[in-house]
Amino acid sequence: MFEARLQQGALLKKVVEAIKDLIEDANFDCNNSGFSLQAMDSSHVSLVALSLRADGFEHYRCDRNVSMGMKLANLSKILKCAGNDDAITMKSEDNGDTITFMFESQNQERLSEFDLKLMDIDSEHLGIPEAEYDATVKLPSSEFQRIVKDLASIGDTVEISVTKDAVKFGTNGDIGSANVMCRQNKSVDKPEESTEIDITEPVALTFALRYLNSFAKATPLSSHVVLKLSKDLPIVVEYHIENVGRLSFFLAPKVEE
């Protein structure tokens, strides 16, 4: 059987809220090392990869590898019934056709159980090689969210260019253009406001803002977001979930026609 208890149930709620508009359904894969998901959006332009480590859960048991297909909208409906301070336990029997979500309030006075029917989902899994990126930028997730939201009011695409001192986001549209530059700032006083750039080669790539705005829905999961860029490769937008795992998004670039 599979059983996993997350004291901070809100994490699971935030993860599902962050991905439910991007992907319709997905297989959640559980094995000894943890709970993971990989799914592409319907247009095969972006990909979501979630990884929650077994040791990130207060209790984790997975007797055999299971893949549980769920419709994200339905999972979201159920998780919205959990309180923000509730602990969430997921349970499923081997070869079962449902997954049970148990919500426990902090004082343990309220206990609720919801069963979600599992589905068979054909999923295509992409092998993503571990790569060294030309540039890695770590910036406050709220700052990234603001930039992609602001730029989307001007244009449809953003050019992200990274040099050793700064990362620049630029767009053009019918009404004009916009540029936002964030300088490297390794603030020791306020680590939550730091922007760090690690670069082997300057890089500039263009991406659709619509997807980046969708990824930014993961902002509540982490104080920082990590952007990884290499020439002619998809961007990786990564949210580290402290002590538990990470939620990564991959987005193919816009290319010259």
Binding site: S43, H44, V45, L126, G127, V255
Partner: peptide, 14 residues
């Protein structure tokens, strides 16, 4: 700037 590439152009099916 133009065409939107798909992910399969970069990554192989696993």
């Amino acid at each position: 700037y133009g065409a939107q590439a798909s992910l399969e152009a970069y990554y192989q099916q696993a």
